[in-house]
Amino acid sequence: MSRVLVRKGLRHLGAALITLWLAVTMAFALGRLSGDPTSNILGPMATPEQRDALQAQLGLDQSLVVQYLDYLKGIVTLDFGTSLQFYQPNLDMILDRLPFTLQLVGAGMAIAVAIGVPLGVLAATREGTWWDRTASALALLGQSVPVFWLGMMLILLFAVRLGWLPAGQSGSWQHLVLPAVTMSLYPMAHVARLTRASMSEVLREPYIDSARARGLRVRSVVWRHGFGNASAPVLTIVVLQAGALLSGAVAVEYVYSWPGLGQLALQAIQFRDFPLVQAIVVFGAITFVVLNQLVDMLHVAIDPRLR
């Protein structure tokens, strides 16, 4: 039994490492495809000598293979290089920005789950009724509204018109409200739709009927027996959405000038700061792979049939 688990774990780890390697390699390749960064840094007036000097300094005069191996070695030793525009270690900058993004994603996903799950459960338990149709329409709307538009509308209403909340930047919980709400809408809608679909399937299972026949409270039947069994896909989507948002909350962070990773990524891309872009991509890939593993482990913890 435990040996099976160990073997399973090793196989997972192997798959995770291969995924990581592919992501890391992709980040390297895309960085090289985006052109020569030296002209960007030095400007149009630079002489070829200056350019050669900078290329040598950045290691760009080496062959691609050598560059690639250096890059891999850096990642393994947790050296993610130095930013071309900030002259700081990329890792330090990422770690500086990370708490802000974590706050934002954490708050956003918490709102998404707190509203999306009950909404989906409500719709599933009242399938085909007015409740269901309203909830489903709301979810569809939530998935269709563009984040940047919603962000600006919320700023106009709550910051400009009503003056209740700050329009951007960070510093207090009030600063967090609008960006978190903006960010939560899409995952909330996703979670609601998925919860509804998964629940309405589970509610047709014979064990739901028998739980009802045993006279259990509606609450126990719906949540313990129903949602308990419907939660796996919801959990997956919540964790993976969170992972995607950790390095991909660009629009929200931009609209609200939120000093997180998304902002940093945007600045890096605009400046063709390829070491920083690479570092952020690699960081995102690692996060994603780790979260994926976490989801698998959570599934095993929830469902005894997977053990």
């Binding site: 299972e205 014979p206 064990y207 009927d209 028998s210 739980a211 026949a213 313990r224 027996h225 308990g228 069994n229 929830i302 469902d303 005894p304 049939r305």
Partner: peptide, 12 residues
């Protein structure tokens, strides 16, 4: 007691 006993228990 229901028809499909194997599925009338909560698997979790």
């Amino acid at each position: 007691v229901f028809q499909d006993a194997s599925r009338s228990l909560n698997p979790l």
